[in-house]
């Protein structure tokens, strides 16, 4: 009887099956194909003689330009994440602790409002602000504060500004849920025991909100390093990132193998950083289960 019970298929498994199939079909299969293409000399579907090769990876390692592109991509991702966290955390804390329902609703609307517009439109809006003939430069020139336009576009700073604007809502919404679940009485208890509000925040609220910081940062980092539209429009092709390079290899060089190798490198770097970040935060917060 007990044997029969243990071998009976779990009803829940049937519910998981469609999503598991979907995941396998649209996640593991494409990544597997990408990994395969990155070590082949051509596309086996349309080319008769295809062999295994390491030349795509060799090209990447042999030319420091590609390593610079990888580092630029990671740097933009990290800076975007840190700025989004710095802006998003106070806002999320305010949203989580505000007593007024109307105030909470207004803050939520303010955070969500930018997400109602497409990324392309928002990036073009930044271009109208940051370009040489844009609002910022023209205002400063008309006030006599500058003689020549400031270089606000076609820089990493311009890209980070655009990306932060797009991804801050992801950080805020992730953090709000976590901070909202922290019992306020813990902070009150700390203050009753003599801690200042700042110390109570640093030693109670901040460590307890680390899972939210981790989740929000990973989300923003992953989105920032894979962004294409904003870096291309605000960077004006003068800041090369991995997604732009991958697109260039496919659309203009028709080199699918090298594009696949670049994609695999982007994936591996992301995974390594996620694991490292996870471990570091786990150690800091003492939450060993995160590892």
């Amino acid at each position: 009887m007990s044997n029969a019970a243990t071998t009976r298929p779990n009803g829940l498994a049937l519910f998981i099956l469609p999503s598991a199939l979907l995941f396998a079909l649209f996640f593991f299969l494409p990544i597997g194909l990408m990994a395969l293409m990155s070590v082949l000399t051509g596309n086996p579907v349309v080319m008769p003689k295809v062999a295994f090769t390491t030349r795509h990876y060799g090209r990447m390692i042999g030319d420091p330009y590609y390593l610079e592109v990888i580092w630029t991509t990671i740097r933009i991702g990290l800076v975007t994440t840190l700025v989004a966290l710095a802006i998003g955390y106070p806002l999320a804390h305010w949203m989580a602790r505000i007593k007024s329902r109307t105030g909470h609703a207004l803050l939520l609307m303010a955070v969500l409002a930018p997400m109602l517009t497409g990324i392309v439109v928002r990036t073009f809006a930044w271009m109208t602000l940051l370009s040489d003939k844009g609002v910022v430069n023209q205002t400063l020139i008309s006030l006599g504060l500058i003689a020549q336009p400031l270089k606000l576009m076609y820089t990493e700073t311009g890209i980070v500004v655009g990306l932060v604007h797009i991804y801050v809502p992801f950080m805020v919404l992730t953090l709000t849920g976590v901070i909202g679940r922290i019992d306020e009485r813990l902070e009150q208890a700390a203050e009753n025991l003599g801690a200042s509000p700042l110390r109570a925040f640093l030693e109670v609220t901040l460590p307890l909100s680390l899972p939210g910081i981790l989740a929000g940062s990973l989300l923003v980092f992953a989105l920032a390093i894979s962004a294409y539209v904003t870096p291309i429009l605000l960077g004006g092709f003068q800041i090369m990132t991995l997604p732009i390079l991958i697109y260039q290899q496919i659309s203009a060089n028709f080199n699918v193998g090298f594009a696949a190798a670049l994609g695999i490198v982007l994936l591996v770097i992301s995974l390594l950083l996620v694991i490292a970040y996870n471990r570091a935060l786990g150690l800091v917060s003492g939450q060993r289960e995160l590892q």
């Binding site: 030319d63 330009y65 076609y154 820089t155 960077g235 003068q238 800041i239 090369m240 203009a252």
Partner: peptide, 15 residues
């Protein structure tokens, strides 16, 4: 020579 040219001009025009 496109690959070689691309690598060179990408370097020239990077910020």
């Amino acid at each position: 020579r496109k690959d070689e040219i691309d690598q060179r001009v990408n370097r020239i025009f990077r910020a």
